[in-house]
Design a protein around this nucleic acid. Structure first.
Length: 719
DNA sequence: GCGATCAGTT
DNA sequence: CACAACTGATCGC
């Protein structure tokens, strides 16, 4: 549980993810995502009262979070006070003390956190330096390092402090299978079951929390079967999620809940109450998504475990694992749970931590979670030597590492490699990503202690399963760790005693796995999934369409290609374009003494964006001396409250960039007032936020963020 | 009655 | 391990 109390040392007048106690005096609020433990006090009468007495106080979050929040009547009173901020778009906010009139400017940038729909991390820039609040996050390896807005001038930003979600920041949680691996495991298990007959159904025993949506949408997309849920109105404006959900109980995949669900299940009853269809009893299995991790030594790579006659646990995590945190990010620090990590951590990890912190070189690190058995002081004491204070000098120049594949920055390639490869305790690259030939049967399991009551009417199916499984188990490929790719590729899981089944497919490449995960037509998906024999062994057709009930809703799900996007109804949209108008660029470092930090603030325009379009959409404002003097500010925008900030492009000495654009001045309109999210907008946002993906190929705002202005400009206040 | 807190459960 | 919620008991306003 997060111990973060809501305020950051550098900017104590704003509150993040906490809304009680001291936070009641905040000038502005920020919500990283819609999970209850980050919303403490948000609906309390005290805060509501304060809101009523204030003219300025607002809550800033992503558009998706706003939408989800406002779906609940309990938070409706926030309606006029929530400002949705575009992700990856530096936005200036004026923090005004209503009593004294005192004002402070701050620039905030939302970065996708990959934790649940709408989840973001906050990067703040202002007079007291740049700080990063991660909230809860789940980023794939290399994701954060690829976030351009965390960098400036080709290197990581000068970050004063990092407020970090350290949930799984412990070597014991060294490995958590990737999202793709987990999804694939669940998918095949579900597929193997529901294709047996229309009466075979699956219950996904999920917690009541946002974060499972990508699982639902992918299952639905792949299997052509909508997922039954209790409520879906919160997604009313996110069609790409909505279309994969249903409130009709006749579907074969259920994620409905009930306080007595476990008890129901013992009696072959689903949480929604049904036990049969057309008078024919259902055959049910339950799958409980839960965090399973794999220590450095034990590399059990399967992601599905059978826990009972018809019960399974599937690996699923909302949070980043230790290795993801260290390896995947250039901005996350780690807090080992051991007293002295230098003593207890494997040598390689020490190096990882050290390199990591050296790379970021923040002045401070504040773990939001303090592992038991230690204290904040102790942890910080341990980390301190790795932070800036003890480093000799200024941050050393470091290349960005591997950027999005679509845009390569020409830097010393060797350095790039060093940056990450050296950090890998175990080579994780290319572990036979496509060689695995998965079969639905593989999804099966191992014998499990029969201590679970057998469910009525299921004995037959169960034995079928087991027999199938044993015959196919030999096909498992265990992607165990190995220091050599080739070794790994040939490993076969041969032991029946392993309680796991699905091979954990290694997909740890340095490239974002967006396509692999979300596109239906990509190679991996096709090769891995389409080959499923299925029918023969099962003696049944596995057509996804087997389910064509009368309600006509179950079958054809629009194959909205890439995924999680959230289409929205047309109406009410000022649309994407208007939003796109609000972007800015990099600013010049006006601060002499910090000049070294920003010598090369520089953005590129996306190749795909025609210059004409860019010019049309991106405008720079005039600069009129801003009070903001952050050391390495780059960009900014004005939200409803804000104004734009100047940005200046500097073309540094690094002529390493190949495609720097021209430096013309633009005028940037202010950011539109907060309104209900628009369809296109949410689609775009959801796609990024739900998955942590941040380099989607949408042309939306991305290119704007990269536009460059050559001279500083200044925004107009809108309030 | 509602909210906050805590312990226990899942 | 710890997640994110929920339930129920207790206490205070």
């Amino acid at each position: 549980m997060s111990s973060f109390q809501g305020q950051m040392a550098e900017y104590p007048t704003i509150s993040i993810d906490r809304f009680d106690r001291e936070n009641l005096r905040a000038r502005a609020y920020f919500l990283s995502h819609c999970h209850k433990d980050h919303m403490k006090g948000l609906r309390a009468p005290t805060l509501k009262r304060r809101l009523e007495c204030s003219l300025k106080v607002q809550l800033y979050c992503s558009a998706v979070t706003k939408e989800l929040l406002l779906t609940s009547p309990k938070y409706r009173f926030w309606e006029k006070r929530i400002v949705a901020i575009e992700i990856e778009t530096p936005t200036q906010i004026s923090l005004i003390d209503e009593a004294s009139g005192e004002k402070e400017e701050i620039v905030v940038t939302l970065l996708p956190a990959g934790h649940c729909p709408g989840s973001v991390m906050f990067l703040f820039q202002g007079n007291n330096g740049t700080v990063l609040y991660t909230g809860d996050f789940r980023l794939a390896k290399g994701e954060a390092a690829r976030m351009e807005l965390l960098h400036s001038g080709g290197r990581v930003r000068d970050i004063q402090s990092v407020y970090l979600d350290t949930t799984f920041c412990d070597p014991r949680f060294y490995q958590i299978p990737s999202r793709e691996e987990c999804l694939r495991g669940i998918l095949e298990l579900v597929r193997s079951w529901i294709t047996r007959s229309p009466y075979h159904v699956v219950w996904l025993n999920c917690k009541a929390a946002y974060g499972y949506e990508y699982l639902f949408t992918n299952l639905s997309e792949e299997l052509g079967v909508q997922v039954h849920v209790d409520k879906l109105d919160m997604f009313r404006n996110m069609p790409d999620i909505l279309h994969h959900l249903t409130t009709q109980r006749s579907t074969q995949i259920h994620a409905c809940r009930h306080p007595k669900a476990e008890e129901y299940y013992q009696w072959n009853k689903l949480p929604c109450g049904i036990t049969s269809k057309n008078k024919i009893p259902l055959h049910t299995i339950s799958i409980k998504p839960s965090t399973m991790w794999f220590g450095e030594r034990s590399r059990k790579t399967n992601v599905i475990v059978r826990t009972g006659e018809s019960s399974y646990r599937a690996c699923f995590s909302f949070h980043s694992s230790y290795s993801e945190m260290i390896l995947g990010s250039s901005t996350h620090c780690t807090v080992p749970s051991h007293k002295d990590p230098h003593e207890r951590l494997p040598e390689v990890l020490q190096r990882v931590i050290k390199d990591f912190l050296s790379y970021i070189c923040p002045v401070n690190v504040y773990p939001n979670v303090i592992p038991v058995g230690t204290t904040l002081d102790k942890v910080q004491e341990t980390l301190k030597p790795l932070c800036r204070s003890s480093q000799n000098t200024e941050p050393k120049y470091k290349p960005l590492g591997k950027l999005k594949k679509s845009r390569r920055i020409h830097l010393d390639s060797e350095e790039e490699d060093d940056l990450f490869d050296d950090l890998l305790p175990v080579p994780l690259k290319h572990k036979l990503p496509y060689q695995l030939t998965l079969h639905p049967e593989l999804v099966l399991l191992t014998a499990v202690p029969q201590n679970q009551p057998e469910k009525l009417g299921q004995s037959t199916e169960c034995s079928e399963v087991e027999s199938v499984q044993s015959s196919l188990l030999a096909n498992f490929i265990d992607c165990e760790e190995s220091n050599s790719e080739s070794e790994e590729e040939s490993e076969i899981l041969a032991s029946l005693q392993d309680p796991v089944m699905l091979p954990q497919q290694k997909t740890d490449t340095d490239v974002p796995q967006w396509e692999v995960f979300f596109k239906r037509n990509d190679n991996v998906t096709d090769e891995g999934l389409e080959n499923f024999p299925s029918s023969t062994e099962m003696g049944r057709s596995q057509s996804p369409k087997l389910f064509s009930d009368s309600d006509g809703e179950s079958t054809h799900i629009s194959s909205q290609n890439s995924s999680q996007s959230t289409h929205i109804t047309e109406q009410g949209s000022q649309g994407w374009d208007s939003q796109a108008d609000t972007v800015l660029l990099s600013s010049e470092d006006r601060n002499g003494d910090t000049a070294f930090l920003n010598q090369s603030a520089h953005k590129k325009v996306k190749d795909s964006i025609p210059a004409s379009k860019m010019e049309k959409d991106v405008l720079c404002l005039k600069d009129t001396s801003s009070d903001v003097q952050s050391r390495d500010q780059d960009i900014s925008i004005a939200p409803s409250v804000g104004k734009q900030i100047p940005e200046e492009k500097r073309l540094p000495n690094h002529s390493t960039y190949t495609d720097s654009q021209s430096s013309s001045d633009f005028e940037i309109p202010s950011t539109p007032e907060a309104e209900l999210p628009k369809q296109e907008h949410l689609q775009y946002l959801y796609e990024k936020l739900a998955t942590g993906q941040h380099n989607a190929s949408f042309s939306g705002t991305t290119f704007l963020q990269e536009a460059i202005c050559t001279r500083t400009t200044k925004g107009h206040f809108t309030d």
